[in-house]
Computed example of a mutant assay.
Amino acid sequence: MGKQLTAGDICKRKVTVGYKQTSLVAAAQLMREDHVGSLVVVDDENGSRQVRGLVTDRDIVMSVVATGLDPEPLRLEDIMSEHVVTANEADSLLDLMRSMREHGVRRVPVVGFQDELMGIVTMDDVLKILAQEMNTLVGSIDVGIKQERARRQ
């Protein structure tokens, strides 16, 4: 058997981050530039980035645009989710999926031993891994069929 995949193995290490005082307009522009649907809100403490919140493109639309608020004076701290579901680098892929399901989240920041931000895993990342694993299983079916045909000739 192969090694069990962990959150640390599959997370993207380049994370687009913002700070509580980052303007909402600047945050939206950063999300657009980096082609991401979320920002992890962090504080820099003792040289490490500590997760303080999460803001998604949906948060901006639902909390600001759809309610007719002026985004100009708003900061990330005004709309960020403060109770962020995180995963430890050592958490298994299965534990990560269970946590995403249990909390109904699509994005999970990955933290290290001292709760410092190490990466982020999205539902898309998990689905790609699962699709690759399913493809491997399909390949084993094809090999089995070919081997059986060769034995019967």
Rank of each mutant, 00 (worst) to 15 (best):
L93E: 03
V143F: 06
G2K: 08
D78T: 08
R13S: 11
S48K: 12
A90R: 10
D9A: 09
D43L: 13
M118V: 15
V36P: 02
Y19S: 05
D95W: 05
M80W: 09
L76C: 14
D59T: 11
S92K: 05
V121L: 06
G37F: 06
K14P: 07
Y19A: 09
K14H: 11
D124Y: 07
Q153I: 14
V84L: 09
K20G: 11
D59K: 04
A28D: 04
K146D: 15
D125G: 11
Q50T: 12
A87M: 03
Q114T: 14
K12G: 10
R107F: 01
M80K: 10
L54G: 00
M1V: 03
P71Y: 08
V42R: 01
A131T: 01
L24V: 01
V42L: 08
D43F: 11
V85Y: 02
R13V: 10
E77W: 01
M123V: 08
V42H: 05
E82Y: 12
L30H: 03
V55M: 06
T86P: 00
N46W: 09
L5Y: 11
M97Y: 02
G104W: 15
S81L: 03
S140W: 14
M31A: 13
T22M: 13
V84Y: 07
C11V: 00
R58H: 10
D124N: 05
V138R: 14
K128D: 15
A131F: 11
Q114Y: 11
V40M: 03
D95K: 04
R49K: 13
K20E: 11
R13I: 08
I141P: 00
K146E: 15
N88T: 04
Q21P: 00
T22Y: 08
G47N: 12
V64S: 06
A26H: 13
G47D: 05
D43I: 10
A90I: 10
M1Q: 04
T86H: 08
P73H: 09
Y19N: 05
H35W: 04
S81E: 14
A28G: 10
A66K: 08
D57F: 09
S99W: 07
M134I: 01
N135R: 14
D9L: 02
Q132W: 05
V121Y: 02
V65W: 13
D9F: 07
G119A: 03
D124I: 03
V41R: 02
K20Q: 07
R152L: 15
T122A: 10
L24Y: 01
R58I: 07
V51S: 07
G112Q: 06
S92E: 03
R49F: 11
Q21L: 07
E148L: 15
L127F: 13
L54N: 00
